[in-house]
Structures are given as structure tokens and as C-alpha cells.
Amino acid sequence: MSYNWNWGIFFQLSPDGTYTYWQLLLFGTGWTLATALSAWTIALIMGSFIGVLRTTPSPWLVRLGNAYVELFRNIPLLVQMFLWYFVLPEVVPAAIGDWLKQLSNASFYNAVICLGLYTSARVAEQVKAGILSLRSGQRMAGLAVGLTLPQTYRFVLLPMAFRIILPPLSSEFLNIIKNSSVALTIGLIELTAAARSMQEFSFQVFEAFTGATIIYIVINVVVVSGMQLLERRVAVPGFIGRSPPAAGH
């Protein structure tokens, strides 16, 4: 192989002279996590709201929720990012557009909102599925004891629905971390972008990308372990492993 391996490259200074390459990767990781966590907050809040809408008795609310989900699910994430970053400033009134264009860290804010809304549609799917997997009797029992519909959602349906969807929800969280890499196209220097720029300056292609790969793997392991811990902590005694008595209708 005509490739020159140099694992020491991580400790060399990058061309701008202030940081070593592994520090650049670290900053990239920081941006990745910041973007992912901020976007996840938006995704959880909006996604839960839309997911609940799609299970209410009102056909109009259900249709609204469905339209929301279809919109964000059928356009590629990259295209959505371009729409937020390039198209939005042009179609809003000139004053707002100019302000948007000169915003520092614009790529971060755009990435967070875009990623947050994109993922919220997938979270909405999970939340809807979780609520609908509960026996219809649970909703009736909540109402029968005098709780209003919002109270029934809050105290009876959602606590169980969220426990049920913890596994797919943690998959979505991992997805959001991975999808943050798409923001490199609008200038966010997250982990993959940092690795790419390390590769461009140092020509040590495989070291750079191996570094990034290892960091992603570590993040994965930490998140998966964290989720398993969370699942154990919120598990309902006697429920997991033992299905509730008799199939419902």
C-alpha cells in the first residue's frame, strides 16, 4: 500500500496553529452533541404533541397531525436543511431575511430547528403507536373515574405509552446524533466536518476518519447503556415480561 500511516497526526497542530487535530475532533464532537441535544428537545416536545393529536377523537386534529408527519417524512433531510438555510431568508420579509443572514452561528440554529422538526415527525409516529397499543379500556377507565380527556392522557395513557416506546425512541435519539452530520453541508463544523477538514489539511485520510468513527462508536455505546439503565429504572413492576391479563378489543 502506498499510503503512509501516521497515527501521531492527532497530536500535531492543525494549520491554523492553535489546536491539535484531536482537539479539533473534540470541538466537532461538542458541536455534534450540542446540536443533537437541542434538536432532541424540540423533537420530543413537538413529536409528543403531534403524536397525541393523532390519537384524539377529533378527525380534524388527526388529519392535521398526519399532514405534519407526511410533510417532514417525505422530504430528504438534506433538502430540508437547504430550505431552512438558503430558501427561508429569501422568502420572508427583507428585514427578517437580512437579520437571518447575518446571524452568527446561523448554521447551528438552522441545523437544530431543521433536525428537531424532522425528527419530531418520527417521534410523533412512535408516540401514536405507543398510545394506540394500549387497551382501549385504559382510556375508558380514566374517563370513568372522572378524569377529563387531557388528564387521562397525562396520568394514564402517556406514562405507559412512553415506557412502551423507550426502545424505538432511543433509536431515534441515536439517529439524531448521526443525522447532525448532514449539517456540515451548511457549514456546521460538527464531528464529521472536523474529520473531513483534518483529512483535507493533513492528508492522513484513514486516521482522521478512524478517529471520528471511534468517537461515534463511543457515543453509541454510552447512549445505549444509558437507555438500558433508564428502561430499568422506569420499568413498571410486574408489567414487563408479564402481559396484562387477556387481550383487549
Binding site: 448521526k178 452530520s181 448532514v182 464529521t192 483529512q199 468513527t213 461515534y216 457515543i219 453509541n220
Partner: peptide
């Protein structure tokens, strides 16, 4: 499955 597609494309 633990890597972003963008990174895999670069790889």
C-alpha cells in the same frame, strides 16, 4: 449502524 451515512460516504 453506529456511523452517520455522511461519514460512510467519505470512508
Amino acid at each position: 449502524r453506529s456511523m452517520p451515512l455522511v461519514l460512510v460516504i467519505f470512508w
